[in-house]
Design a protein around this nucleic acid. Sequence first.
DNA 1: CCACGCTCCTGCGCGC
DNA 2: TGCGCGCAGGAGCGTG
Length: 270
Amino acid sequence: MPELPEVEVTRRGIAAPLTGRVATAVTLRNAQLRWPVPADLPATLPGQTLRDIDRRAKYLLLRFDRGTLILHLGMSGSLRVLDRDVPAATHDHVDIVFGDRVLRLRDPRRFGAVLWHEGADATHPLLAGLGPEPLGEDFSAAGLHAALTRRQCAIKLAIMDSAVVVGVGNIYASESLFRARLRPGMAAQRLTRPQCARLYDEIRATLRDALDAGGSTLRDFMHADGEPGYFQQSYFVYGRDGQPCRVCGTAVRNRRMGGRSTFFCPTCQR
DNA sequence: CCACGCTCCTGCGCGC
DNA sequence: TGCGCGCAGGAGCGTG
């Protein structure tokens, strides 16, 4: 499941071979993603040069001459750059062809999105209203504290809210809270300033560590027959229900919060 | 403004 | 061995 580090690794992986190239064709095999892929994309995109690729939250923003192609990988999406004549497989829904190369979106669960937007990012409903980037300069311990003082919900749900901070998914929410030694169920507004500072630090450290781990796989990222740059990672608590905490040995617990599995160590997290 | 539950979809793991 | 069920999950969106 692509979280922010995986999306950033994907961005770097596809930017290197594609930036500066001209789109020559678009193939839509299945336009029914989370929202319909615009049917006129095969008419819109060809002839336009890919100038740059940015990322905002988990959205990839492919900057073309006359607009931005917004991509989201959902839960199961992946992007690869391949030779154009590599046959498409099951769940390969969209191709953006760049001459002899192709950017191919595979997304078995089709929670992803491919959208076209002309105009400033802030004018798009999916991008307007997003909170700060966790690794950016707009995110701060003080700002996090301010955002949390209004929230009565559990801290885990708060940091997964894109209005508070973007890019913290279910896995890294549990991991960040473990590293900050905070119970996922504690009320967001009850975090003290020092606790907010710790959480701020650990959200960033958790994402940066994952990014570093992913960066090491970047070398192999674009092999035509390889899987994209998702990487194995050893988690402190995520997915480790009943197994010993790596710090103190207490059995890790799994509790459902907001319909999502939430893992924590009852001893280390208070 | 805030909180919560529903929804989209397929692959996988488990129980029988 | 095979079948069917339930769960997993990002995040927008409608409702209270």
